[in-house]
Amino acid sequence: MSENLITPENLVYKKTKSMTDRILHYCPGCGHGTAHRMLAEAIDELGIQGETIGVAPVGCSVLAYYYFDVDMQEAAHGRAPAVATGIKRVFPEKYVFTYQGDGDLAAIGTAETIHACNRGENILVVFINNGIYGMTGGQMAPTTLEGMKSSTSPRGRDVKTMGSPLKITEMIAQLPGTYFVTRQAVHTPANVRKTKRALKKALEYQKLNKGTCFVEIVANCPSGWKMTPVQSNKWMEENMFPFYPLGDIKVPEK
């Protein structure tokens, strides 16, 4: 059999339209690309491309505005939830999201993150946690695991002098302002599909004006962790998931 299957009616999967055609600047195998695409797919499945405003962070995903074909705003380091607060208050009918890494959200932006969530701003916060500062060369982040080596903790993170890894998602879930808090991953097809469902739900909840939706995505950093992408995904399963367990942390009461 040699029939040609590559015809428009047989199409089952292609890059979604809310992603631009630019080649992503991320390292090979980086979870950011998949996370971007899932957010873009969630936007397209809800048909809200024209009503969505994103806020880009500082860090590896600083160029996120090149890749999302929606209105985007760049924020100062860590200030994305504060900028998103302003945008959402001026345009309450728009869907507003921030896309932040762990250095942005859990270190320099801790105050903005916690207060935006505490005020219950009706925004979606997408938090990519790879336990490291990827862009600047693999320094230790607040989310770096105990014993994990980074360029600023070459003998591994010592909790006595460097503190314990910060579970900011669990902290956020305690705040009455948050409505939906979940932790997902994008390293296997099943996890990727679950992440998309979570992001879609979070965007749908935004219409209800019930509070902040917070989606953490545990991701790999092959370059920062000094592994191949496939190895880093395995390492993430074995080491990151026991400390950052996947699943819903706060779900709306029925």
Binding site: E3, L5, I6, T7, E9, N10, L11, V12, Y13, K14, K15, M19, I23, L24, Y26, P28, G29, C30, G31, H32, G33, T34, R37, V186, H187, T188, P189, V192, R193
Partner: peptide, 16 residues
């Protein structure tokens, strides 16, 4: 493959 591809490289077709 297309779902996990970080760079949205793969387009998939399936016979109907």
């Amino acid at each position: 493959c297309a779902v996990v591809c970080p760079d949205a490289v793969i387009t998939v077709y399936r016979e109907k």
